[in-house]
Design a protein around this nucleic acid. Structure first.
Lengths: 176, 176
DNA sequence: GCCTAATTAGTCAAGATTGATTATAATGAA
DNA sequence: TTCATTATAATCAATCTTGACTAATTAGGC
């Protein structure tokens, strides 16, 4: 939840925005960074507002429905810096979900496992391909974040390939 | 939530157990695989029970308080296999949280960023050290899962080191 | 034998998350 | 023009998660 707050405060620090605008931006550009859903973002904005980190004011443009525009407050800026420092200092977020299945793969015949892991690999390749686009230079932070994702996905691909190779050579030379 | 179900069904497939027992095992041995909390596990067990995937029967040993013992049902075994196949086939779980902070690091002076990332690196080293213990041979799946974690943490360490080196050489030869 | 601390076993209210839904406006096709 | 579709903007009920709490039992120290 702190990561969500950090994200929203960071976006509002750059520019006051209404909820829909924030959600569009997140959906279009930040799918890699977060999986926060629309309704969650609205809820987090509400909490940030309760806490005094953002202020809200209603605005109407033309005869469009009234929108709530959120702005970061001074206290909010301080909170942003605090959350940023915390976030950068902690590695605990690397939670590596997705290993539960691996733990139980002994319940399936190895060729079937290989089949499924091939699917995983294909998805990985697809995700990695998306990084091939030139990526316009956004600033150090954004570029590092993208580089980071790419590095981890690449490592994941290498590991998966190695597992598949061993599975196909199938003489089970695993462990040690 | 499916990953939690997979985990609990997998543990119950090995042996019928009561809630406390399951939670102890998870806390002691599976901290790397999941961050599901006690109360959540009880809730998931309740849902699995509602769905007919596990059966519950109360048992009393000595004059200890009555415990609810959970057993996997036949339908539960089928569900387990289904969830296992799904889990192995999907890479989407690699969500890489923790990059939000990186995105915003331009709001801090680089030496301070380096300081925080050094803390991250230290935590990583500590986590990696835990893998040095011989790890008694548990079965292919468990060993692969551990190998996987280690591979990703190692990649993370390499990336972080590279970033720190570049930050300290500080002449900012980034991105491009 | 008595008191304290730890272990065992689980529940619950409060908070967080999200799929589904509502409602209006603009756009486009026929 | 009229109807269907997509975009805009957000809310809500239902579900999921968890920190805090309860309550009994056993273990350990003196």
């Amino acid at each position: 939840m702190n990561e969500q707050a950090l994200l929203l405060l960071g976006l509002l620090k750059a520019q006051s925005q209404h909820g829909y605008q924030l959600n569009e931006f997140i959906e279009r550009n930040l799918g890699r960074m977060t999986d926060m859903k629309k309704a969650t973002a609205y809820a987090v904005l509400e909490r940030l507002s309760q806490a005094g980190y953002v202020s809200v004011h209603s605005a109407q443009e033309g005869n469009r429905p009234v929108r709530k525009v959120y702005s970061i407050t001074h206290v909010g800026e301080e909170q942003f810096m605090k959350l940023l420092r915390e976030n950068l200092s902690n590695a605990d977020k690397m939670n590596m979900a997705g290993d539960v299945g691996l733990m139980f793969l002994d319940h399936l015949p190895l060729p079937e496992v290989a089949e499924y892991l091939s699917l995983r690999l294909a998805q990985l390749e697809a995700r990695l391909d998306e990084f091939k686009q030139p990526l316009r230079h956004e600033g150090l932070g954004v570029n590092l974040a993208l580089e980071h994702q790419q590095a981890l996905l690449t490592a994941e691909r290498a590991w998966l390939s190695s597992v598949l190779a061993r599975l196909e050579a199938s003489s089970i030379p695993f462990g040690n």
